[in-house]
Design a binder for these strands. Structure first.
Length: 742
DNA sequence: ATTAGGCGATTTTTT
DNA sequence: ATCGCCTAAT
């Protein structure tokens, strides 16, 4: 492997302490990823077979990047390394072992939305009114209980009020239904392995023996279930290396338990503790400011962060009038910085506490033709039409999945409303059949109209046909055939609106993703595709290569770094966010979140706030965040907005009407091309918006020639759907698209 | 009985 | 943007 001279002494210590428990307390920018990759490379180099190494990361993206670097260091020897998120690796393990728990290998994975759907179903079956008891709240209670390994029975025993009593009832039934549906939610992906290991000692021994070296990244954000799971697995060899920073623990709301890191020494008494305190990322100014802020927290392991980096620029506080002004101010700074430092757009990130804040920022960026990408928000795989098609595929893979059945039974509309479906469900329940099985007995279901019966029968025939075809067709052929048969695409085409076209595109995109998966992956099965899709996070698909400003929440910023960082919305109530802050503990988590944001910045940090902000549909007067007062004055300068932002550059151009569907779509080649480098100058293009009609052949500067399929909207909101042979179908806002009619 | 369409409310963070 | 809820149309 490449020499250890690339790492400092502390890092070397963490890399070389191979046997026994190790905890690395790694300050921001201290080379934590480097330690993990070198440590794994080191293990492999000294002869540890890669399959004996289990490395758990927080995101798939982090895992993939590290895997790549390790391969670079040691080559093919690292091929059988198990590296990934807790959820994806234990899902994989469960695929082979779940039969011992009464599940089938093809189990479905429910995301939060699916899980909420099931909870609503359960509530309605138990006659618990969702008006009175918020299903979302019940779901989060149940998830919380599961993260702390509280069984439904235990939960029931400890109820203290009516709400918890109802929650207990739902919890019991919910778990039962999941099993009936041969499905697991996110929490089960951790709980079921624990169940497996505690009930089947032989299996536990097998995995203990297999995973002799365990590494965990972002240990401060593991929850009770993850802690127990790892404790079980590491119990025999005790070669466990955890890396984390208590100051960056920001997932308590999801059950992350900071005690895991604080109590590590107690759990593993002879642990080697290494502190990485030298920061290689940020200027001295940024590091000092962040340090001053985090020192206000009482709960923490004190650290002595230092850096050899330059002092750098002061931190700039941008005092703005309102949220629009904030966007405009940030944009003008982006221009300034990118000219001054010769930086590219991709070197810049704008962070905020809540996704809702992205809107005004996006508007400002779009107005000024600055390319941007959003991480988070409504993800591609969460879109209704995409979830619908996925539900069909899920049902094919796992016909017991009643939740998916319910999702698609009347999509597209086939005359099966609440009443008909209710009858079918009653029938299935009394006969102990799955809904899919029940469709085979449509004539026995009492109370179905003849129309409904015909529909149910057709559904049954269709499903049986595709079930048969699963063994005959490739996964991509099968998906395409199924999508064709359900006829959803022509329906969307008929609808003709820009929204429908965007749905149409999304479904095409999904089909391409399936094809791509089947061509690129050795383990290409529909099961694996569905599993991967339900476990990808938005950050995983982030493309750093595109030259665009990145917009993201402070939570998604963890583990990333950018030369220039803007943190927007530093206002009391927003950061810290009041709806979360009840007492000191919550305030300290908000402060850690802010700290995570600050420490992402390498060269320059901007903090902005607005005096007035449009929130919850009304103007609200904001005061600057207390966090701004927690840095010493000599590190910061404040600039008060003059509220006159002449957009420096009137080149008007757009990616087509992205209309908040932003990066939900993977980018096409044409768009990537657009993002790269310079933007063409359209200063003098004449306005031809009014001449564009359906059927016209038009020319676009980037996408080339295309045919107009549909025009909608009016005035400045005039939009067109154009089919470009070179780039596919695009929704364009005519105001910006500068089409030439040919 | 079913569907379409309109209306209003909703936005904390996410594997 | 999406969901739940309502009403009118079929």
């Amino acid at each position: 492997m490449s020499s250890l001279s690339e790492v400092n002494l502390k890092q070397q210590e963490a890399i070389r302490a191979v046997q026994g428990p190790v905890m690395v307390i790694a300050g921001p920018g201290s080379g934590k990823t480097r330690v993990l990759t070198f440590r794994i490379a080191h293990l492999v180099t000294i002869g540890v077979p890669a399959y004996q190494i289990l490395a758990l990361t927080f995101t798939n993206k982090a895992a993939n990047e590290m895997k790549e670097r390790i391969t670079h260091l040691v080559g093919d020897k690292s091929r059988h390394l198990w590296m990934g998120t807790f959820h994806s690796l234990f899902a994989r393990l469960l695929r082979t072992e779940c039969e011992k728990l009464g599940f089938q290998k093809n189990f479905s994975i429910y995301d939060s939305q699916d899980s909420l759907g099931l909870i609503k179903t359960v509530m309605s079956d138990l006659s618990i009114p969702s008006q009175q008891f918020n299903p979302q709240a019940i779901r989060s209670r149940i998830s919380g209980a599961k993260n702390q390994l509280i069984t439904p029975e235990d939960y029931l025993k400890s109820v203290i009020d009516l709400f918890e009593e109802k929650t207990a009832k739902v919890y019991i039934e919910y778990q039962k239904r999941l099993k009936q549906n041969n499905a697991m939610d996110f929490d089960d992906l951790l709980l079921r392995p624990i169940e497996l290991f505690t009930h089947h000692n032989k299996i536990l021994l097998k995995y203990q023996d297999r995973f002799r070296f365990i590494l965990i990244d972002e240990y401060q954000d593991t929850n009770r279930a993850q802690y127990v799971l790892i404790k079980l697995l590491a119990d025999q060899y005790r070669n466990i290396c955890v890396v984390g920073d208590d100051a960056q623990s920001i997932y308590a709301f999801r059950g992350a338990d900071i005690r895991n890191i604080l109590d590590f020494e107690r759990d593993y008494p002879n642990a080697v503790i290494v502190r990485l305190e030298q920061n290689y990322r940020s200027t001295r100014t940024i590091l000092s400011a962040a340090d001053q802020v985090i020192k206000k927290n009482i709960d923490q392991i004190t650290k002595d962060l230092w850096t050899e980096n330059q002092e750098g620029d002061k931190i700039t506080i941008l005092a703005c009038e309102d949220d629009q002004d904030e966007g405009a101010t940030i944009v003008s700074r982006i221009y300034e910085e990118s000219n001054k430092l010769k930086l590219q757009f991709k070197d810049i990130a704008i962070m905020y506490r809540t996704n809702a804040q992205s809107r005004s920022l996006e508007d400002a960026l779009r107005k000024n033709s600055i390319p941007y990408m959003i991480i988070g928000g409504v993800e591609f795989y969460q879109r209704k039409e995409v979830k619908d098609v996925l539900a069909y595929l899920r049902l094919l893979v796992n016909p017991r999945d009643d939740e998916s059945f319910m999702r698609i039974v009347n999509v597209p509309a086939r005359g099966l409303g609440d009443v008909a479906v209710g009858r079918l469900r009653d029938f299935a329940a009394t006969k102990s059949l799955t809904l899919f099985e029940a469709t085979d007995h449509a004539s026995e279901v009492s109370g179905l109209t003849s129309k409904a019966r015909t529909s149910v029968e057709a559904l049954s025939v269709m499903f049986k046909k595709y079930l048969r075809l699963t063994s005959e067709m490739s996964m991509s052929e099968l998906s395409r055939a199924l999508v064709d048969e359900i006829g959803i695409l022509p329906l969307l085409k008929e609808e003709g609106t820009v929204e429908a076209m965007s749905r149409w595109e999304n479904i095409q995109e999904l089909l391409s993703a399936i094809t791509e998966f089947s061509e690129l992956r050795a383990d290409a099965t529909l099961e694996n595709f569905l599993q991967e899709v339900s476990l990808v996070s938005d950050i995983d698909t982030w493309e750093e290569t595109a030259n665009a400003v990145t917009l993201l929440t402070l939570h998604s910023a963890k583990g990333l770094e950018f030369p220039i960082v803007f943190i927007a919305g530093l206002e009391e109530g927003l950061l810290p966010l009041y709806s979360t802050v009840v007492e000191r503990k919550e305030l300290e988590e908000e402060r850690r979140l802010y700290y995570v944001g600050m420490t992402r910045a390498m060269k320059k940090l901007y903090l902005s706030y607005a005096k007035v902000r449009f929130r919850f549909g009304e103007m609200s007067y904001q005061s600057p965040s207390r966090f701004l007062d927690e840095m010493e004055g000599d590190l910061v300068e404040t600039v008060v907005s003059s509220r006159r932002h002449v957009s420096r550059d009137m080149r008007s151009f757009s990616l087509g009407d992205r209309n908040r569907d932003r990066k939900d779509r993977k980018k096409t080649d044409a768009e990537s091309h657009y993002f790269s480098d310079t933007m063409p100058d359209y200063e003098n293009a004449s306005d031809v918006s009014n001449q564009v009609r359906a059927g016209n052949i038009v020319e676009h500067e980037v996408f080339g020639r295309g045919k107009v399929l549909h025009v909608s909207g009016s005035g400045e909101f005039l939009k067109a759907v154009v089919d470009f042979p070179a780039a596919g179908k695009k929704n364009l806002m005519l105001k910006y698209a500068r089409l030439k009619v040919l």
